[in-house]
Nucleic acid binder design. Structure first.
Length: 116
DNA sequence: ACAATGACTGAAT
DNA sequence: AATTCAGCCATTG
């Protein structure tokens, strides 16, 4: 089923591009990405886009996208609940109690980093 | 067509 | 400071 029309596809693709731009060892939030795309109020749609990200090519590092609190809210959407945390730790990001440590320090905001 | 849900966020209590 | 409410918008029942 399509579930995505051309216009929405472009939005999804834009989200994927931004996520792929997140440097290794860094993390970002749904709101930050949504805001960068001009849809600051559609943070939920970013999350929905990530839900579809598993079927997109090239693969999207969805593990680097967490909520504003640095919590791995989407970990259960991975192949395994611990997959997300494992991927983050593999990049040198410390995860404790399903949350990113040094979150504020590792936070990567596209509106600030890219629009600089 | 209406109601409920969701990988969110910010404001209000 | 912690919990609850409301806005937001696409997808699903």
């Amino acid at each position: 089923m399509k579930t995505t029309q051309p216009l929405e596809q472009d939005f999804f693709e834009s989200v994927y591009q931004v996520v792929r731009l997140i440097p290794r060892g860094r993390v970002s939030s749904y709101g930050a990405i949504a805001r960068y795309l001009g849809a600051s109020r559609s943070s939920r749609m970013v999350g929905w886009a990530m839900n579809n990200s598993h079927r997109v090519t090239p693969p999207v590092p969805a593990q680097r996208v967490v909520n504003r609190n640095g919590m791995l809210t989407g970990r259960m959407h991975f192949s395994d609940p611990d997959e997300m945390q494992r991927l983050l730790e593999a990049e040198g990001i410390e995860v404790k109690n399903h949350s990113v440590l040094h979150w504020q320090k590792l936070f990567w905001d596209p509106s600030k980093e890219l629009a600089l």
